[in-house]
Computed example of a mutant assay.
Amino acid sequence: MTAYLVSLLGGALIGLSSTMLLILNGRIAGISGIVGRLAQGINTGTNAAFVVGLLLGPVAYLAAFHHWPAVTITASLPLIMLAGLLVGFGSRMGSGCTSGHGVIGLARLSPRSIVAVLTFLASGILAVALLHGAVS
């Protein structure tokens, strides 16, 4: 059970920060939108604070547990770069990313977000099946 507490705490913090941003600023915590607005120079203070908070997550983990979080990446660099480009393209095409649609959109029962999350899940399942040879 204790192995899941860190994940539970992380999920609770994501929910809390997303809710606070929505209640206090009227903004949805979609990372692609926040980074896009930051790059455009729109509402830079709030957007920069949110991005810095995301980047400081591993540092907070280090402070709490006295070691860095374990990360294992087995994919090649070209595959990671392609995946990043596809995620960016999909975020723009879907008018948001998994964080905005999945965390806030589903909580608000947004029909657009429900369709988006189902599409994310189906695409992920298909990608895993194709990469591991389950679909031919």
Rank of each mutant, 00 (worst) to 15 (best):
L22G: 04
M93H: 12
G10S: 11
G11R: 06
G30T: 01
M20W: 14
I80F: 14
T74C: 02
L21R: 02
I28M: 11
Y61N: 02
G57S: 10
L9G: 07
A39Q: 13
W68F: 12
V117R: 03
L38P: 00
T44I: 15
R37H: 15
F120Y: 14
A127E: 11
L77Y: 06
M81D: 05
L121V: 15
G15N: 07
V35A: 15
A64T: 09
P69E: 10
L22P: 05
A75I: 07
A3Q: 12
P111V: 02
L85N: 02
F120T: 00
L77D: 00
G57I: 06
V6M: 08
M81R: 06
L86A: 08
G10Y: 08
H67D: 10
V51H: 04
L56T: 14
T44Y: 10
M93V: 15
L86G: 07
Q40R: 15
G10E: 01
T46P: 00
L22M: 13
S17T: 13
A70N: 12
I80H: 07
V115G: 06
I42W: 12
R112M: 02
F65L: 04
A63D: 05
L22I: 02
L55T: 07
L24R: 14
L9Y: 11
I23C: 09
I42D: 09
R112P: 00
I125D: 05
N47F: 02
G96E: 05
S32G: 06
A49M: 14
P69C: 13
V87N: 07
I42Q: 09
V115H: 13
L86V: 05
V52P: 02
H101E: 07
P78G: 03
S18M: 09
P58H: 01
G105K: 04
R92E: 04
G11M: 08
R27P: 06
L126A: 09
S123T: 14
M20H: 01
M93F: 15
H132P: 00
I31K: 03
L77H: 02
V52E: 06
L55N: 09
L56C: 11
H66R: 14
L54P: 05
N43R: 15
I14G: 03
A70C: 00
P69T: 15
V71S: 03
G36A: 15
S7T: 10
L13W: 10
A83Q: 03
A48H: 01
R92Q: 07
A39H: 10
A70T: 08
V71I: 14
G90D: 06
A116R: 06
G90R: 01
A107W: 11
G90P: 06
Y4P: 01
A116N: 12
L13A: 12
A48E: 07
V87A: 04
A64S: 05
N43S: 15
R108M: 12
G41F: 03
V117S: 03
I14D: 01
A49V: 13
I31N: 09
L77T: 11
A107Y: 11
L21H: 03
L130R: 12
A107V: 07
H101W: 10
M1G: 14
L9P: 00
